[in-house]
């Protein structure tokens, strides 16, 4: 049996770990999932430390939480921070089956463990007599030296693989500013600069499109990445609404009859954002 302190620590950590895992599972946004997972990993690191695996605990924090999870975050940023999973399940019965399988599997595992009669445990005090790191080092460089060397090859391969996968072949010379300008004139589609976003300057502006004189949105004003992700926040409706309210208030104050009041433009079509390239187009 372990000490009471460890028991307390375990229960606290277990709650955090399971909570983090469930959070990762249930959070809609990838960033939140990543952060939840990081919490789980940290609590696991503490579990490792508590169980005498000092080296692993530190490695868990430094490598896993520090490096791998950051890598995850980088990729999440690259792919789109706020791109959310739609909650609608597309595969029929997938969710139910997954939950059933998960529950069944968990029950089986736990039942199996419960039947395993693991009451006795040796503890690591003997194995860790020379220190955990020294013990591990002795094993790694004697018994597991071959596996260790192979791991090196594996890491090299993975590094090269990642580079190859993300490498983009440059097939033509990069166009200079002059060439681009000339091309723009030649194409004669959009000769002057694109409109700047956020004319109202009421927001963080970049994802808010400029409004044209008739109150419609100038989609060109939003950068293409945001457009592709569909992350345009249209405020035109809000503005028009407030304009209408202002007109109304003015009319009330002036005591005009309803017939004399200026007509506010009726509700417009909802903003149609530039559709992201769909599957068909990509193909």
């Amino acid at each position: 049996m372990t000490s009471t302190g460890e028991a307390v620590q375990f229960w606290v950590l277990a709650v955090i770990a399971v909570g983090g895992a469930l959070g990762m599972l249930l959070m809609k946004k990838a960033v939140h999932s990543a952060l939840c997972l990081a919490a789980t990993m940290l609590s696991l690191a503490v579990c490792y430390l508590a169980q005498g695996a000092v080296f692993l605990g530190v490695v868990q924090i430094v490598v896993y939480t520090g490096a791998i999870m950051m890598l995850f975050l980088f990729v999440v940023m690259l792919v789109g921070v706020s791109s959310e999973d739609s909650l609608k399940e597309q595969l029929k019965g997938q969710r139910v089956a997954a939950v059933l399988c998960g529950v069944g599997f968990g029950v089986l595992l736990i039942a199996g463990l419960a039947n395993a009669k693991l009451s006795h445990f040796t503890g690591l005090s003997e194995a860790n007599a020379e220190g955990n790191v020294q013990g591990l080092a002795k094993l790694i460089f004697t018994k597991y030296v071959w596996a260790f060397e192979v791991t090196g090859a594996l890491l090299i391969t993975a590094a090269i693989g990642a580079m190859v996968l993300t490498h983009r072949e440059k097939i033509r010379e990069r166009l200079t500013q002059r060439q681009l300008a000339a091309q723009r004139v030649k194409d004669n589609i959009q000769v002057p600069p694109l409109p700047a976003p956020g004319v109202y300057a009421r927001h963080n502006a970049v994802d808010i499109p400029a409004l044209l004189p008739d109150g419609t949105v100038a989609e060109d004003s939003v950068m293409s990445t945001l457009r592709e992700r569909g992350q345009i926040r249209d405020v035109s409706q809000e503005m028009l609404q407030r304009m209408a309210e202002l007109e109304e208030a003015t009319a009330d104050w002036l005591g005009r009859p309803s017939s004399a009041r200026p007509q506010v433009a009726g509700p417009r079509q909802a903003l149609e954002t530039v559709p992201t390239p769909t599957k068909e187009e990509a193909e």
């Binding site: 997938q94 997954a98 998960g102 599997f105």
Partner: peptide, 8 residues
């Protein structure tokens, strides 16, 4: 899912 079911 089928892999997981199989494992189960």
């Amino acid at each position: 899912l089928s892999m997981f079911g199989g494992t189960l």
